[in-house]
Simulated assay, not measured.
Amino acid sequence: MPDTVDRRILRHLLADPDAPNAVLAERVGIAPASLWRRLEKMRESGVIVAIQGRIDWSALGWEVQVSLRFTLDKTNPRAFDEFIAAARDVPEVTEIQTFLGSVDLRLSVIARDMAHWQQIYRDRILTLPHVSDSDALMLVSTIKDSGELAI
């Protein structure tokens, strides 16, 4: 379990993941060598899985973001595996999540514009196997997008 110093490291790391270790150590109030050891320990224990870059897809011309929710026909025991394998083959799918409840899976899909979205939907989404119901939610705006919690 992370102690107070580890939690401080995590808060600063979430706030500025690009900060060099020396800067991060100064902000946390510990020596750079101590910071490095603590980061390594948190990586080894699985607390820190990865430090990732995030892409602003709209800055690259991908203006449409859609969240698709699916309920699968579970009479086929391979329904989940076959659906997930087919969804992974759709290049515009950026995220696949599974759920318990009335919705089985959710896909995040990006497209350059509405015409491109229509093409993806017709050619790739409607052909996904074992779908018994689906719902599409088109992103209008993002109010909060943060992995930060009070640590």
Rank of each mutant, 00 (worst) to 15 (best):
M1A: 15
T4W: 00
V5M: 05
V5D: 04
D6V: 02
R7G: 11
R7E: 15
R7L: 13
R7N: 14
L10S: 12
R11V: 07
H12Q: 14
H12D: 14
L13Q: 10
D18I: 11
P20E: 08
N21Q: 13
L24I: 08
V28T: 02
G29V: 01
A31G: 07
A31H: 08
A31K: 09
A33T: 15
W36I: 13
W36V: 15
R38C: 02
R38E: 04
E40F: 11
K41L: 06
K41P: 02
R43C: 10
E44A: 15
E44K: 14
S45E: 15
G46L: 07
V47S: 04
V47M: 05
I48F: 02
I48D: 11
A50P: 04
I51K: 13
I51P: 08
G53C: 04
G53L: 06
R54G: 04
R54P: 01
R54Y: 02
R54A: 08
R54D: 09
D56S: 01
W57E: 05
W57C: 07
W57L: 11
E63Q: 05
L68V: 14
T71A: 15
D73A: 10
K74W: 03
D81K: 10
E82Y: 07
A85K: 06
A86G: 07
R88I: 04
V90R: 01
V93G: 05
V93D: 12
Q97N: 13
T98V: 08
F99L: 12
L100S: 10
G101D: 04
S102L: 09
D104I: 00
D104S: 00
L105A: 14
L105Y: 01
S108Q: 09
V109G: 04
A111V: 04
A115W: 03
W117G: 01
Q119T: 14
I120T: 13
I120C: 11
T127Y: 06
L128P: 06
P129T: 09
S132G: 01
D133H: 02
S134V: 02
S134F: 13
A136P: 09
M138C: 00
M138F: 03
L139R: 06
V140W: 06
V140I: 06
S141Y: 02
I143T: 09
I143M: 08
E148F: 12
L149Q: 12
L149W: 10
L149D: 04
I151D: 14
I151T: 14
